[in-house]
Nucleic acid binder design. Structure first.
Lengths: 192, 192
DNA sequence: ATTATAGGTGAACGACCGTTCACCTGTCAA
DNA sequence: TTGACAGGTGAACGGTCGTTCACCTATAAT
């Protein structure tokens, strides 16, 4: 990508972070030190070709396909990576990638190591979707006999078992009550 | 939250997904079947009080604090969860939470199980920030003797070692060359 | 020396922006 | 029966929107 466009991209993202929207033509004129909106108009054309921004039916500037997303450069082992544009595997927005159902999803912080063999560690955040029906081998957030826990869901006939991903934990059969709050759709961990 | 506002929130989010921006007053009049913009104006006031949307200096509607974010309901073990509004721990936007440096970050898909004891599994995605200086015990994406790998970074004196989080793998000392492409800042895994 | 082109100015255009005003309902409490 | 009020209509306002036009440079190719 052209260097000029990359700098423009930075400025636009800074504006986005401050205002939670993209600038108008006259605001862009300020940002880029133009004194004519026509100059902006031409810049916009270039940015559109680079797929950084787009314009909606009213001409307003909206994010393009690569604006709020990160490049997915490939696979660690596979001769990785020449971050050349042509070779980049994909480009994706984390929000859209991780969340299927915004209205029915919430986050929970993990405590305990019962799912550690599934790669779910204490202090990780899991995204729970309460609108999904739990299926066998789904990881669910469940309340079993008045305790909340994260376990594999397993149904044999009419009997539901909960299984930890850690041999030290026994298989759980509800004595009195079991309710599934939702299915874990993803797990995120932040190091820095 | 009032039910009326929740439905409004859904409509606004749908508009956001379609147009990548929030509607204008007259567009909101269409969405909510009002024939006067004044009705919209009053609805906007209510939505602002609920912190779902905001208005910028020009009066344009922009996302509020809770618009694109997910509620963090708490901790799996700690008497979890009454999803009552007052008790919710936090509310956060995944993009903002996970990405510190948009310009210098990229994604890589994990292959191999050398970091599995750190909870980084094959097919997970890691977010790499190439602008950070690697420190001891950081997980880094590195090229060692012409192979790309994910390992713990370890520097003793002037000698750099790479360590896997898996006892079956030996400690790596570069024979000829070692370059660190970036530091892993987070790890995400999608189940559904 | 001439021409083409990329990039910019400045002004004008109609359309749409968010705000505000006076006014019209129902509903519900006093 | 009255009054207050939440919620809506419809119209008008000045300001800003994105677009487009004619025109002015530099720079580089012919």
């Amino acid at each position: 990508m052209e260097k000029r466009l990359e700098q423009a991209n930075k400025k636009l993202r800074r504006f986005w972070e401050q205002h939670k929207r993209l600038p108008s033509f006259s605001e862009m004129a300020e940002i880029f030190n133009y004194s004519s909106k026509n100059a902006v108009s031409k810049l916009v054309s270039r940015l559109k070709e680079a797929n950084l921004i787009d314009q909606d039916s009213k001409g307003h500037i909206i994010p393009g396909g690569t604006f709020n997303s990160l490049p997915l450069l490939g696979n660690v082992q596979a001769g990785f990576p020449t971050p050349a544009e042509e070779e980049l595997v994909d480009t994706l927005t984390l929000d859209e990638y991780l969340i299927n159902n915004h209205n029915s999803s919430f986050l929970v912080e993990v405590a305990g190591d019962s799912m550690i063999n599934a790669g779910i560690h204490p202090k990780d955040l899991v995204i729970v979707d309460r609108s999904l029906d739990p299926k066998n081998n789904d990881i669910v957030l469940a309340n079993i006999d008045d305790e909340w826990t994260l376990k594999y869901f397993n149904k044999k006939g009419n009997q539901v078992y909960l299984q930890a991903a850690n041999e030290q934990y026994p298989e759980l059969v509800p004595q009195q009550e079991l309710s599934v709050a939702g299915v874990i759709v993803s797990c995120i961990r932040k190091y820095k």
